[in-house]
Computed example of a mutant assay.
Amino acid sequence: MDNFGVQKAELKTIAKQPSIPEFNVPYFQNDINRTKDWLGATLKNVETLAEQSASGSHKMDGVIVLSVKSKSKLAMSVIKDGGVIVGVEGERN
């Protein structure tokens, strides 16, 4: 994707360059304070549309499993890194 915009070297030197601001959007930030440890797993609530979309959910509910420690109680379960928990024992959150 580099075949658009100013192409000639002599024109590039005089072309205006945009200033691109840094994004200050919560889902671009890694807020470690929003995570919880549970039975050796690190969990985070589904809070953004990006997280909802990535989990394939039609609602913004559940928790994302960020990581499961290899020697934890959950390591032998079906709960894996990147999974989303939306309910427990048939009860949705």
Rank of each mutant, 00 (worst) to 15 (best):
A41W: 05
E51Y: 07
E51H: 05
K80S: 05
K44I: 11
R34F: 03
G40R: 01
A41T: 03
R92T: 13
N93G: 06
K69Y: 07
S19A: 14
D81W: 00
Q7H: 05
V84L: 06
W38Y: 04
T48M: 06
P18S: 14
E22F: 15
S57I: 02
S19V: 15
V25M: 13
V78H: 13
P26M: 07
R92D: 15
M1P: 11
K71W: 09
A54D: 14
K69M: 10
N45H: 09
T48Q: 03
S19P: 09
I20P: 01
D61L: 11
S57N: 02
I32T: 15
S67T: 12
V63H: 04
V63M: 05
D2Y: 15
S57A: 04
N45G: 08
N30I: 11
R34K: 10
A9R: 10
T48I: 02
N33T: 15
D61H: 06
D37S: 14
K69G: 11
V25Q: 13
L39W: 00
E47D: 07
P26H: 12
D61Q: 07
N93W: 09
V63I: 09
R92H: 13
D37R: 13
A75F: 00
P21W: 03
G90W: 01
F4R: 13
S57G: 02
S67F: 02
H58A: 11
G83V: 10
E91K: 06
F4W: 15
M1H: 15
V84D: 11
I14C: 14
S77Q: 06
N33K: 15
A50P: 01
Q52W: 09
G87C: 00
R34S: 05
K80D: 06
K8I: 06
P21D: 08
E91N: 03
L66Y: 07
K12P: 08
F28D: 13
K12F: 07
K36L: 15
D31I: 13
V25N: 13
K44H: 05
K12G: 08
I32C: 05
V6L: 02
G90A: 03
A54H: 09
A75T: 01
P26S: 07
P18W: 08
G87D: 01
G5E: 06
V65G: 00
G83R: 05
W38N: 00
I64P: 03
D31M: 10
E89C: 12
G56M: 03
F23N: 12
N24C: 08
I20K: 03
E10L: 07
E22M: 14
G62Y: 05
G82P: 03
E51P: 05
K69E: 12
T13P: 07
T35E: 04
D2M: 01
T13Y: 14
N93M: 10
V88L: 08
K71C: 04
K36G: 04
A15H: 02
M60W: 02
N93C: 04
R92C: 10
S19F: 11
K71N: 12
Q7C: 00
M76G: 06
Q29T: 09
F4P: 08
P21G: 08
A75E: 01
L39T: 10
Q7P: 07
N24Y: 12
R92Q: 11
V88T: 02
F4M: 10
N45Q: 11
I64E: 10
V84I: 07
L43N: 04
N24G: 08
